[in-house]
Deep mutational scan, measured.
Amino acid sequence: GKELVLALYDYQEKSPREVTMKKGDILTLLNSTNKDWWKVEVKATANDKTYERQGFVPAAYVKKL
């Protein structure tokens, strides 16, 4: 199945390749080969529509579930 990670801290994206997350968010882990930056998929809701974004977050800010 898919691997999930838990956001340990809030993170505000600093570039278009990154994604914003809030502490407590559960994210889908896409790639953890880089030890510093993990690629995740974030589900977000805006205007009653759910959309998914993929991007990088600092590996130290998340932990595998």
Rank of each mutant, 00 (worst) to 15 (best):
K49T: 10
V57H: 02
K14N: 09
L6W: 06
K14R: 13
S32F: 05
K63W: 07
L27A: 07
K43Y: 13
L65Q: 05
I26T: 06
G55K: 01
A46E: 13
P58Q: 01
K14Q: 13
K23A: 12
A59M: 03
E41F: 05
G24T: 01
E41D: 05
E13I: 04
K63R: 11
L65S: 03
L8Q: 04
E18Q: 11
K35I: 10
Q54W: 06
T45N: 12
N47R: 08
E3R: 11
K63L: 11
L4G: 03
N31D: 15
T20P: 07
W37N: 00
S15P: 02
G1W: 11
R53F: 06
A44T: 14
G24Y: 05
R53A: 06
V5S: 02
Q12K: 12
A44M: 15
N47V: 09
K43V: 14
R53P: 01
I26M: 05
K49Q: 13
K64P: 09
V57R: 00
M21Y: 01
N47I: 10
R17M: 13
T20I: 04
V62E: 03
L30R: 03
Q54A: 12
K35A: 13
F56N: 03
T20R: 05
L30Y: 03
Q12V: 15
K2P: 12
I26K: 04
W37E: 04
A60S: 14
D36T: 13
F56K: 02
S15L: 07
L65C: 14
T33I: 09
K39E: 14
V5Y: 07
D10M: 02
D25H: 04
T33H: 10
A59D: 03
K39Q: 11
A59S: 12
R53I: 08
K35S: 11
D25S: 06
D10A: 06
D48C: 14
T20K: 04
G1M: 13
R17F: 12
D48A: 08
T20N: 05
L29E: 01
K23F: 05
W37K: 02
A60K: 15
D36L: 13
L65E: 03
Y61V: 07
A59V: 05
D36G: 08
Y11G: 00
V42R: 11
A7S: 05
K22R: 11
E18G: 09
V42M: 12
V57G: 01
A7V: 09
Q54G: 05
L65P: 02
A44C: 15
K35N: 10
A46G: 10
W38Y: 06
P16Y: 08
E52I: 15
Y51Q: 10
W38D: 00
E18S: 05
L4D: 04
T45D: 10
R17H: 13
D48P: 08
K49L: 13
L30V: 10
A7T: 03
K14T: 13
N47L: 12
K39R: 10
K64E: 06
K23P: 03
V19E: 00
N31P: 03
G24I: 02
Y51I: 12
D48V: 06
Q12W: 12
A7R: 00
L27H: 03
R53M: 07
G24Q: 02
D10S: 07
N31W: 06
N34P: 04
A60E: 10
V19W: 03
K64H: 08
E18H: 05
Q54H: 10
L65R: 03
E18A: 05
L30S: 00
T28K: 11
K23C: 08
G55D: 00
G55Q: 01
V42L: 12
G24M: 03
K2T: 11
G1K: 13
R53Y: 06
L4P: 04
Y9E: 08
D25N: 06
Y51P: 10
W37M: 04
G1A: 13
L6C: 10
K49E: 12
K49A: 11
W38F: 06
N31K: 06
E13V: 05
F56D: 04
K43Q: 13
N34Q: 07
L29G: 00
D36R: 13
L8F: 02
A59I: 03
T28S: 09
V40A: 01
K39A: 07
G55T: 01
K43N: 12
A44Y: 15
K43A: 11
D36F: 14
A60L: 09
I26R: 05
Y11A: 01
E52D: 14
K2W: 11
L65N: 02
N31M: 06
T50D: 12
G55Y: 05
K64M: 11
T50P: 10
Q12I: 14
Y11T: 01
Q54S: 11
K43R: 14
A44P: 08
K2L: 12
R17P: 05
P58F: 05
L8N: 02
E41G: 13
A60C: 15
E18K: 04
R17Q: 09
L65T: 05
Y9F: 14
R53E: 03
T28M: 10
L27D: 01
A60I: 08
V19M: 07
Y61W: 06
K35M: 08
K64D: 05
V5T: 02
T45K: 11
E41T: 09
S15R: 09
E3Q: 13
A46W: 13
L8V: 06
L65I: 14
K39N: 06
Y11V: 01
I26Y: 06
V62W: 01
L29K: 00
N34F: 07
T20Y: 03
F56L: 09
N31I: 07
L29S: 00
S32D: 15
K22L: 07
Y51M: 10
V40Y: 00
D48Y: 08
K63T: 13
T45A: 10
V42C: 12
K22S: 08
L29T: 01
A60R: 15
D10Y: 04
S32W: 08
V5H: 02
L29H: 00
Y9T: 07
A46S: 12
F56I: 06
K43S: 13
L6D: 00
E18C: 04
D10Q: 03
A44F: 15
L27W: 03
K64S: 08
T33S: 13
V40S: 00
Y51E: 10
G55P: 00
T50C: 15
Q54T: 11
Y11R: 01
T45F: 12
T33W: 09
G24D: 04
W37V: 01
K35L: 08
E18V: 04
A44K: 12
D36N: 13
A7E: 00
L4F: 14
A7C: 14
L30Q: 03
T45W: 12
K2R: 13
Q54R: 10
N47C: 13
L8I: 09
L65D: 03
V57L: 02
N34V: 04
D36E: 12
E52K: 14
Y61C: 15
L65M: 09
W38M: 01
K2Q: 11
T50V: 14
L8M: 09
Q54L: 05
T20G: 08
G1Q: 13
K23I: 04
T45Y: 13
L8A: 03
K43P: 15
